[in-house]
Write a protein that binds this DNA or RNA. Structure first.
Lengths: 211, 211
DNA sequence: ATTCTTATTGATCAAGTGATCAACAATCTC
DNA sequence: GAGATTGTTGATCACTTGATCAATAAGAAT
């Protein structure tokens, strides 16, 4: 790849750091968090392993940072998609459709890797905690807007957010690992959300239904 | 441990194989599937790494077999617990309480490891598929009994079984990785099951309620 | 053009992994 | 008890991992 193209060019530290971070992200999305090794990243950037080690205090933190970057990007992406929605019901429907979409399997695998690798990588474990909190915070905000608008009813938005995220992660994990049939997952998820938020049956089904 | 106690005793192959399998299971339940190494198993059995390698075609299959054994034992255990139940509603309540219990976190971590490691270990991936099928088959059988008894109503037991298992795994994963609050998970799970099986509200709540 | 700063490298270490194989020795068989 | 069987070992290989450091050279400063 770029190993031969721009050989021996000297770059500003900030740029190299960015390159390394990007390479790590690509490797993770392709082959999982466990595939982020000094040599793999170095090879992808077109640089010596020593340079990667020079810019990163340790591989554990690079893995953690890469995980954090991927998940943070995911949140931003989903948030952007929810922007145009007029009602909270609309937004929730889009959220469910997006999060249970088949194109999220790469990110789901990242989550599975993180949950498993977190036990041996303290930095990663901490980052997993942060990102789970971030997701929950995001969803809580959405739910509270809906409650304020009088669209949703729930007496414990934080707990409900955790529950909904748990369900979504579980369905995604199953779909990614073994059964990719999202057709039955989305209706189920909508039904659960409707019930837990005191919505009329079918309220979430109409929105953003793909052909 | 037993490293010094019974030194240099020669055992029948079947017994050694059993010892190795047991050691692998204990290591997995304590430190995860990734901790199953030739040396770790050998050390626990009190034997040379070469002997472990001698009895196992490869570490990949030992990991896969260990995962399979743990999950199979889990299914048997749960099945045994459901035996005494008179009604399917009872059984489902016990099933939910058991599977979402806090003492299952070790097994949940095994599942997370398996899902993550499966990508690099074909034997493990195959075993994961088998055990997921086994769980689904078990739950489908339970659901069908309930339907036959007139307790449950569902037009697609297999699909519903996958969904319920996905939800349970997701809630368990979250609880294990970060939030161990099962108090909100079980009521939620009961509500979902009641709704999906056309049960009256609260039907699953009364059964097997711990003090 | 020369000097200086520093990004980059090559070589190398120590640790850990799975796996192999001739040699040993514990136990069984006769 | 002598011999055959085979469970078991010690040594060792090839490989991958993260990490270190003196030495090099690219680019900026003068």
């Amino acid at each position: 790849m770029s190993t031969l193209s721009a050989r021996n060019r000297r770059k500003a530290p900030a740029e190299r750091v960015t390159e390394i971070a990007l390479a790590a992200r690509q490797i993770a999305l392709t082959d999982g968090l466990a595939a982020i090794t000094v040599r793999a990243v170095a090879s992808r950037v077109g640089v010596t392993p020593a340079l990667v080690a020079h810019y990163q205090p340790s591989m554990n933190v690079l893995v953690a940072a890469t995980f954090g970057a991927i998940v943070a990007a995911e949140i931003d992406e989903v948030a952007a998609e929810l922007g145009p929605c007029q009602t909270s019901v609309d937004a929730l429907g889009v959220l469910i459709d997006t999060l249970l979409g088949p194109e999220r399997s790469a990110v789901t695998e990242i989550w599975l890797d993180a949950w498993s690798l977190g036990r041996r990588n303290p930095a990663l474990a901490a980052e997993v905690g942060r990102q789970m909190d971030a997701w929950q915070g995001f969803l809580v905000a959405q739910l509270r807007v809906g409650v304020a608008r009088g669209e949703f009813v729930t007496d414990d938005a934080p707990a409900l957010a955790w529950q909904l995220l748990g369900i979504i992660d579980g369905l995604n994990a199953h779909a990614t690992v073994r059964y990719g049939d999202a057709r039955t997952q989305r209706p189920l998820m909508r039904t659960i959300a409707e019930h837990e938020l005191a919505l009329p049956a079918g309220a979430l089904s109409g929105a953003a239904a793909a052909p």
